[in-house]
Amino acid sequence: MNDDQEKQLVEKILSGDFNAFHVFVDQYKRLVLHITFRMIDNASDREDICQDVFVKAYNNLNKFQFRCKLSTWLGRIAYTTCLNYLEKKRVPLLDDFMPADLTVDHFPSTANEPDILVEKQDIAGLIQTEMKAIPVRYRVVLTLFHLENKTYAEIGDILELPEGTVKSYLFRARQYLKDRLLQRFKKEELIL
């Protein structure tokens, strides 16, 4: 969706066109889903949180100034809504997690004996499991970069972090995942 289309859509929604809002939800639900599902482990709350994000967006749409992309603005709402939820549920955000701490030794291993036969599914499964062991900010950065193809700058805008921090989160998270995979599988098994 280009800038003009975004502007038109926002104007229609603000004029009370609920069909336009339906289009808006359809357009951006994937983004909201990716952020929410990565940050919230509790499956029964996720869809409600996604709805909450869109209701908030609707109620604040008149404050949107077109200074950034609509998706960036919405992504930020999704991110802060999830953070608030996690804080309310007292889920540790591991914010005081120091860079050097993101190493394999600090996490309990989820698997012990390497299997003889490795399926692609196993690697995917391990990545999904390991994803839950890393701090939420790292997860969101990984998801926005790889699944949503966002740039460092856009991710920085959503998480309200400097670009350099986004980059280092991304590198460390991927290196951690790679080290985890190497603990669990042989090198040859990981080359698909």
Binding site: T143, H146, L147, L181, L190
Partner: peptide, 13 residues
């Protein structure tokens, strides 16, 4: 290994 991992990370949730 990174390339395989990138592929996995691009898989839909």
């Amino acid at each position: 290994i990174y390339r395989s991992m990138y592929q996995q990370l691009q898989e839909e949730i």
